[in-house]
């Protein structure tokens, strides 16, 4: 291209091969735009979530039979009581997050037909893993369940 003659009226001004100033200006603009874009991309990722605490307090009814699930209103957790203590199993299906319903001998998911035993293990369907067990602690006469904290299956609060 540099060999092209200046005499052509249509191509009288070949771009100088080393236009440091122009390139620096372009790169500076590009860099600031890229940096600004990075800053903007941070905005949609909220620093704090407007969701309430995952911990909640619940009192078990006196009449709750051993091995029967108790689901506190508005929560996706089933609490069980047996001889060894109290434990909580999440009722959020591990497949795609539907809330499983209590069935005759465990839980059934209404969305894609997964079925679980009472201890959360998968019996049938597309669910890839067992329903997680959640941390339970005692506070006075009530129990505190932390939906955000998964514990090993079989962990009970004596």
């Amino acid at each position: 291209m540099t060999t092209m003659s200046k005499s052509s009226r249509l191509d009288p001004e070949p771009m100088p091969r080393r236009d440091f100033l122009g390139l620096a200006a372009m790169w500076a603009m590009g860099a600031s735009a890229a940096f600004a874009l990075l800053g903007m991309l941070r905005l949609p990722r909220a620093a704090v979530l407007p969701a309430p605490s995952k911990k909640f307090k619940v009192a078990l009814p006196e009449s709750l039979a051993d091995g029967e699930p108790f689901v506190p209103a508005g929560r996706s957790v089933a609490l069980f009581k047996d001889k060894e203590g109290v434990y909580a199993v999440s009722t959020v299906c591990t497949h795609l997050g539907c809330i499983v319903k209590q069935s005759a001998d465990g839980f059934a998911c209404p969305c894609h037909g997964s079925e679980f035993n009472k201890d959360g293990t998968v019996k049938k369907g597309p669910a890839p893993k067992a329903l997680p067990w959640l941390a339970v602690t005692k506070d006075g006469g009530a129990f505190v369940v932390d939906e955000g904290k998964v514990v090993d299956p079989g962990t009970r609060l004596a």
């Binding site: 122009g22 372009m26 500076a28 860099a31 600031s32 940096f35 800053g39």
Partner: peptide, 24 residues
């Protein structure tokens, strides 16, 4: 054109510097 290149260069560098300040 040189003037405009300088304008672009220094404005962009200024923006970059201020954005860094804001980020810090």
């Amino acid at each position: 054109m040189k003037k405009n290149k300088h304008l672009l260069l220094w404005s962009s560098l200024g923006v970059l510097a201020l954005l860094v300040v804001a980020a810090v």
